[in-house]
Write a protein that binds this DNA or RNA. Sequence first.
DNA 1: TCTTAGCACTCTCATTCAGAGAGTGCTAAG
DNA 2: CTTAGCACTCTCTGAATGAGAGTGCTAAGA
Lengths: 344, 344
Amino acid sequence: MKKPDLTDREEKILRSIIETHVRTARPVSSSAVVRKRSVELSSATVRNVMRSLEEKGLISQPHTSAGRVPTDVGYRYYVDNIMQPLTLTESERAEVRGGLQRLTGDDIGSVAAGVSRTISEFARQLAVAVAPPVEGELIEQIRLVSLDGNRVLAVATTRTGQTRSAVLKMREHPSAADLAKAAGLVSEWLTGAPVADIEKKMKDHLGEVGHPLRDVIAGLLAGSPQIFRVRGGERIHYEGARYILSHPEFSDDAAFLGEMFDDEEALAELVRTRAGEGGVTVTIGRENSRKEMKRMSVVVGSYRVGSRFGQMGVIGPTRMRYSRLVGLVDYISEVLDDLLSERR
Amino acid sequence: MKKPDLTDREEKILRSIIETHVRTARPVSSSAVVRKRSVELSSATVRNVMRSLEEKGLISQPHTSAGRVPTDVGYRYYVDNIMQPLTLTESERAEVRGGLQRLTGDDIGSVAAGVSRTISEFARQLAVAVAPPVEGELIEQIRLVSLDGNRVLAVATTRTGQTRSAVLKMREHPSAADLAKAAGLVSEWLTGAPVADIEKKMKDHLGEVGHPLRDVIAGLLAGSPQIFRVRGGERIHYEGARYILSHPEFSDDAAFLGEMFDDEEALAELVRTRAGEGGVTVTIGRENSRKEMKRMSVVVGSYRVGSRFGQMGVIGPTRMRYSRLVGLVDYISEVLDDLLSERR
DNA sequence: TCTTAGCACTCTCATTCAGAGAGTGCTAAG
DNA sequence: CTTAGCACTCTCTGAATGAGAGTGCTAAGA
C-alpha cells in the first residue's frame, strides 16, 4: 500500500509541485520549483527528477510543453507520506469549540446541521454532516399526551437521552386515564428494546389487550414510522454549496452536483462509506466510487454519540488544502467526541 | 400597464416566436415562423412584422444576421395578453392531488417540503415552498411533560391545530404536580394570544407566582425560542437543484445559485415578495430585484392556512413554458386551499 | 557519476484570414 | 399591402501564422 520508494529529493519536489499547484491552479514548471527555493538545484536537474516522478505516475503533463500537475496517485502519496495535518490557530480552535458548544443542547439532528455549518465556514468548502442512525438506540420510555379532538402527542425517549415525538390521529377521543394506561403498558413492552424492533414488539403484544386501550395502541403503532423513521432531511445536512459551485472547473459537473443536492441520501453515502470509526479518511479523485467525482476529493471524519457514529466531512476539488482540511476535520471530531460524551 | 397596441397578426407572430424559441433555445428566423404555419404569409412579410415587433421592444436580434429572440418585455406581453394557463391532464391532476393529499396529515413544515417536491417533479424546474409564518398563530394550550432528569418536554398547540414542541432543561427536577400546575397557569395566560407575544406575556405574569412554579415557568420562558422561533430550514424547502444547475446557460450563474441554496432566506424572499394573496404571479428576467437573475423567471402562487399565507413557486430560465407552469402552480394552490381548509 | 548550460523541439494560445451559411433589409414589381 | 429577388452583414469554422512556455536531450564541467 505504501510507496516509500521516493528519494528525499523527489519528495521535496513533489511537495513543492503540489503546494504551488494548489495555490495557483496551474501546471507547475521546473523553473517555478526552483524559484520557490524548495531545492538548491538548477531547473534542468529538477526536470530530470520530474521525469522520474512522472514515470512513477505521481505527476503528469497536460500536454507536451506545459508544466506538471499532480495525479490522484501523487496527491495520495502526499497525503499518506508527506503532508502533516495543520493545527488550527489558538483563536480558531476557540471559535470552533465555542460554536459547537452552543449546539450540544439541541437534538442530535440540529447538532449535525450546526456541524456542517461550522465545517463549511472554516473549510470554505461544501460540508456534509450525517447524524448517527436512530435504529440502534434503545427505548427508555413512551409517553402519550392528549391534544385536542382525536389527536395525541406521542413522545419517546431513548437511553442516550434523545427525544422524538409525533402527533397521532386516533379513531376516537381517548380518555386521559386510558392514555396513561396505554403508555405504561407500551413502555413496559418496549423499554430497553432497540428502535428497530418496536413495530414488531407492539404487534406481538397487541393481542394481549382489550377494547379501549387496544385502539390507542393500534393508533400508536400506525404512527410509529412518523416517530422513528427519521427522514433524511433531519439526519443529513450540508452547507456551502456556493463554494463548490463557484469553482469554474466544476461548471461541467453542475448537473451532477445538482443531483447530489436533491438526493441527500446519495450525498450522505459519500461521507458514510469512507468514514472509519475514528481518524480522518481522505478519498481522492478517481478513488471515489462515482466517476463524476473524478476531480473531487472527500475528507471525512466521524463522531460518536452513545454507541453509534455520525459522520462529517468536506467535498471539494482534488486541488484542495489537504493539510488544513484534515487538521480541521480531526479537530472537530475531537471536540465533538468531547462535548457529546458529556451528555449523560 | 397593458400594451394592447399589437395587431392580431403581430400577436400571432410574437406567439410563434416565443413558443418555438422556448422549444429550440435558438433565435427564430422569419422562415421558421412561416414553416410553423402560424400565419399564411411569406417570410418577407413576416420580416416586416418582426421589424415592427423589434421597434416596440418585444423581440431582439443577438446580432445583425440572426433570427429574433424574445425580450423580457416580449415575454411579459405574452404572459399578460396571449398565453392561456395550460390545464393539466386528468391523470396529472389526479397524481398531483393524490400526492398532496398524503401530506396533509403532517405538520405544516413537512407540507411545504412535499409541495416543493411535487412542484419540482411536475415542472421539472427548481421549486421553492415557504410555509406560513407561525408568529401570527394563536396559542390554544401549553402542556408540560416530565422526561428524565431535569428535562421537560413542552408542547404548544395553536388554534389552527399546529403542534410545536421542544425539550427544556430545568435547573432542578420538578414534580409532576408542579408541572401540571405550571402548565395550567401558563395556558391561562397565553390562550388566545399570538405566538409573537408569548415571551412578553410570560414575563409580565412571572412576578405573580411563587417559588416552586416560578422556576418551572422561568425554564419555559428560557426555552420558548426553541419552541416557537422556527428556523428557516423548517419553513423553507426547495427541490430540483438539478434542473436549474443542468441548464448550460446558467453555468456562469452557478456561484449565485450556490449562494441561494446556502441562504434559504434569500431564496424564500424570491417567492415571498412577489406572491399576492391568491392568483399566480410571474416575474420575468430583469423584473427580478436581483440582477444575477436577469435570465431567470419566477412563477409563484400562495396557499392559505388559517389566516396566514404560505408561498410556493418555480424558478427557471426566462425561456420557460409559462402556460404550463402558471397552470401547474394555479392548480396546486387550488388543491392546497381545498385540502388545508379541511383541517379544522 | 551527478549537475548544469544551452538549444532544438513541441505544443498551446491568440490572431488573422477566407469562405460558407444564415438571415436580414431593401427595392421593385404584382 | 404583399412578395420575389438580391445584396449585405454578421457569425462560425478551419487553416495558417507567430509568439511564448516548457520540456528533453546533449555535451561539458565538477
